[in-house]
Amino acid sequence: MRSLSYWVFPVVSGLMWLATLLGLLLYWVVNTDRVIYASMQDGQTFAYISDIGASELKPLFVTGCIITALFLDLSFVSDRLLRHRGRLVPNTSPGEKVLGSLAIVFAIIGTIGLTCLSGFDTLRYQDLHNIFLLLFIAGYLLSAIFICWEYQRLGKKHREHPLLRISFWVKLVFVIVELALAVAFAVSNFRGHKDTAAALEWVVAFVFTFYVFSFVIDLYPAVATRNAANDRHHDRHSFGSFGSSAHAQQREIDEIYYATHPTVPQPHHHHHHQPPPPSDTQDGQRTLAANGQSKEDAAANLQKMMRRGHADF
């Protein structure tokens, strides 16, 4: 279980999206034998994803879209948080931080589009459904462009981390392929080639799965830095405890020292009022006697505490 980390988020998101798509497609092909839904237009024989999602499988469609979007957003946020904490290669320039922030903003826009298009189905809310479909595709596509740009800059500065370059090329391929497919989908849909447009929509959706899984490449290195982060936290905690006990021990040593050396002036502290030092040796001895210690006993205790302090250090 030690290897479980933030990379689980894109895995859950990708598997949920893939399961949703396969569930919808197989149900339409196997269970209904490619039924023609009421939302399909005249002459259309190939169902859009939203046609099947507007049927009795709408609960599956809505749930799958919400879980996919939620865990994908967690992947974006985790990437930003881990880079900020130094557990992943950090952003070292304002430009990289701006690109990372823009990637998150447009991912949120894509999330709104994906969740809303599943609720506002194409059968009852066709215009709203098309608007949210556009937000979904445009939002995640622009988010991919910005995060791709960010990784290109990071990989150029940190050539010792080859995973940055691998992630950059994977996302760049996704951007090029998805952009070409989105344009072909829009043209086919506009020209009334509904079956072609529906087939392209399915391809666009399945290609999106690989983009989601690509974040595993980005987040998996955080597994190796988790122990280092815990060690730093432990060291800070241990140092704080040691510092408190050492301060108390040093204060006790100082009290015994000034009691056995009454002619040595004590330093003045602003926050704690110190009693005036004894005026002579007799006063110092009276002070020790009042505390139940002789001068020899106090000196012996001082030596023991100093030896114990060296041993602790």
Rank of each mutant, 00 (worst) to 15 (best):
residue 306 M to F: 07
residue 28 W to L: 09
residue 304 K to Y: 04
residue 94 P to E: 03
residue 64 G to D: 10
residue 267 P to F: 10
residue 294 S to G: 10
residue 244 S to W: 06
residue 57 L to T: 04
residue 83 R to A: 02
residue 263 T to L: 12
residue 54 A to I: 07
residue 238 S to L: 14
residue 158 H to T: 04
residue 252 E to M: 10
residue 236 R to N: 08
residue 161 H to V: 10
residue 20 T to Q: 13
residue 207 V to W: 04
residue 200 L to Y: 01
residue 69 A to E: 08
residue 172 L to Q: 00
residue 263 T to F: 12
residue 139 G to H: 06
residue 175 V to T: 05
residue 49 I to S: 02
residue 114 L to A: 11
residue 228 A to Q: 15
residue 242 F to P: 02
residue 8 V to Y: 05
residue 299 A to G: 09
residue 14 G to W: 00
residue 140 Y to R: 08
residue 213 F to S: 10
residue 302 L to F: 10
residue 61 F to C: 06
residue 281 T to H: 14
residue 2 R to W: 10
residue 281 T to R: 15
residue 30 V to Q: 11
residue 84 H to M: 13
residue 144 A to G: 13
residue 232 R to E: 14
residue 289 A to T: 12
residue 92 T to Q: 07
residue 303 Q to Y: 08
residue 158 H to S: 08
residue 220 Y to W: 12
residue 272 H to E: 08
residue 213 F to T: 06
residue 92 T to V: 11
residue 113 G to W: 00
residue 53 G to P: 09
residue 276 P to G: 08
residue 265 P to T: 06
residue 65 C to E: 07
residue 142 L to P: 02
residue 109 I to V: 13
residue 80 R to W: 15
residue 307 R to F: 05
residue 189 N to Y: 04
residue 193 H to G: 01
residue 63 T to C: 13
residue 249 Q to L: 13
residue 300 A to R: 14
residue 275 P to C: 03
residue 157 K to C: 07
residue 16 M to G: 04
residue 35 V to S: 07
residue 305 M to F: 03
residue 69 A to Q: 10
residue 3 S to H: 14
residue 186 A to I: 10
residue 120 F to R: 06
residue 223 V to T: 15
residue 10 P to A: 03
residue 191 R to C: 01
residue 91 N to K: 01
residue 20 T to R: 15
residue 167 S to V: 00
residue 171 K to G: 00
residue 183 V to W: 06
residue 75 S to E: 08
residue 200 L to P: 01
residue 31 N to R: 08
residue 146 F to H: 06
residue 1 M to Q: 09
residue 134 L to H: 06
residue 292 G to M: 07
residue 235 D to N: 09
residue 25 L to Q: 09
residue 229 A to V: 03
residue 143 S to P: 06
residue 308 R to E: 08
residue 24 L to R: 00
residue 279 S to D: 15
residue 273 H to N: 13
residue 174 F to L: 01
residue 286 R to I: 03
residue 84 H to P: 00
residue 308 R to K: 13
residue 203 V to F: 02
residue 55 S to W: 11
residue 173 V to S: 14
residue 130 N to K: 12
residue 120 F to G: 01
residue 16 M to T: 14
residue 150 E to P: 02
residue 168 F to Y: 11
residue 50 S to P: 04
residue 229 A to N: 03
residue 201 E to G: 13
residue 154 L to G: 06
residue 59 P to F: 03
residue 258 Y to S: 03
residue 116 C to T: 06
residue 108 I to C: 07
residue 149 W to Q: 14
residue 114 L to S: 11
residue 103 A to L: 06
residue 77 V to L: 15
residue 124 R to D: 13
residue 105 V to Y: 07
residue 131 I to H: 05
residue 184 A to Q: 05
residue 251 R to S: 12
residue 172 L to W: 04
residue 276 P to F: 07
residue 244 S to T: 10
residue 124 R to I: 02
residue 131 I to Q: 03
residue 299 A to E: 13
residue 61 F to Q: 01
residue 192 G to H: 00
